[in-house]
Simulated assay, not measured.
Amino acid sequence: MEDSDLSLMLEVAMAAARIGGDVLDSWSERFTVSEKARADLVTEADLEAQNAIHRHLSSIFPDHGFLGEEGLSEPQGDSRYQWIIDPLDGTSNYVHGFPYYCVSIGLKKDTELVGGVVFDPNRDEMFFAGKSQGAFLNRKPIQPTDTADVGQAMTMASLPRGSGAEDPAVARFLQVLPHAQTVQRSGSATLNLVYVACGRIDAFWSSSLKPWDMAAGAAIITEAGGRVSKLGNGPFDVSQPEILASNGTSLHDELVRLLE
């Protein structure tokens, strides 16, 4: 793959992400009704955004494969590339008008993540990265923090919906809580990941994610100079539900120990 080919793919993905963001914006004012109607509406918004993103990408890359949150699964033709799409990461936030959600588009070549695009329509922030090309926010280079002491670290965690006190994810949250400066739960794994990449937070972990929650963000963190692994420090695998993402300092190893 030539650098110019990947650059073109990322430009197309950024355009597609903005299209998806426009769809979300167009639906966002409708969530003032009952909870049941909200659920129906957000499903429609999610699906319409995904369809718009898929339509744009597939019109330019018809042989590429696609995997998306809303039932999208198309194998590659003669291509080695697959797009991994989350049209709306942070659904509950979106429904309640809490401005912490995004569009996420990851790119995989064979088994390797080679690019990612994340668009936050609330802040008009476009995060993107390509393998060996650097990581950027609105076309300006980004990098993680250099925080190495867990006691000075701002961290984020995901907890499964409906998790109780006995859930291992809750236990891990509580294990880190006395040691980190802060542990937060935000509702958007993808934004947490890119916030690690650009230095707004120091680390994030989860054990309950899907490929579309992680693909773009993991690619962006890696290219920014951070580090991703499994919770136990094994190699990161986007097809598995767990991730520990950090700024790449010794903080990562300290969190591995605390999350055991």
Rank of each mutant, 00 (worst) to 15 (best):
P62K: 04
D63M: 08
H64K: 01
H64E: 06
L67M: 12
G68R: 04
E69C: 11
E70T: 03
E70N: 10
E70F: 01
G71T: 04
G71H: 06
L72A: 11
E74R: 08
P75M: 09
Q76D: 05
Q76F: 09
Q76M: 15
G77S: 14
D78I: 04
D78P: 02
S79F: 03
R80I: 00
R80Q: 00
Q82Y: 03
Q82T: 14
W83Q: 00
I84Y: 00
I84H: 00
I85Q: 02
D86R: 00
D86Y: 02
D86M: 02
P87N: 12
D89M: 14
D89F: 14
T91Q: 03
S92W: 08
S92T: 14
N93F: 04
N93R: 01
V95H: 07
V95M: 14
V95E: 08
H96K: 09
G97N: 13
P99C: 13
P99A: 13
Y100S: 15
Y100P: 10
Y100G: 04
Y100L: 15
V103N: 12
S104R: 03
G106Y: 03
G106R: 09
K109W: 06
K109H: 10
D110I: 06
D110H: 06
T111F: 03
T111M: 02
T111L: 07
E112M: 08
L113T: 03
G115Q: 01
G116N: 00
G116L: 01
V117H: 04
V117F: 06
V117E: 05
V118G: 04
V118D: 01
F119A: 02
D120K: 02
D120L: 07
D120N: 11
D120T: 01
P121R: 07
R123M: 07
D124S: 07
E125W: 07
M126N: 04
G130A: 12
S132G: 08
Q133M: 14
A135M: 10
F136S: 04
F136A: 01
L137V: 13
R139I: 06
K140R: 14
P141Q: 10
P141M: 08
P141N: 10
I142G: 03
I142P: 01
I142F: 08
P144N: 05
T145N: 09
T147P: 00
A148I: 05
D149K: 05
G151A: 08
Q152P: 06
Q152F: 15
M154Y: 07
T155W: 01
T155L: 15
T155K: 06
M156W: 11
A157N: 10
A157D: 09
S158K: 06
S158I: 01
L159Y: 06
L159G: 03
P160K: 13
G162P: 07
S163C: 15
S163Y: 12
S163T: 11
G164V: 04
A165C: 03
E166Y: 05
D167M: 05
D167Y: 02
P168L: 08
P168T: 07
A169Y: 11
R172T: 10
R172C: 07
L174S: 12
Q175V: 00
Q175S: 06
V176R: 09
V176E: 05
V176G: 10
L177N: 14
L177I: 09
L177E: 12
L177D: 12
L177Q: 14
L177H: 12
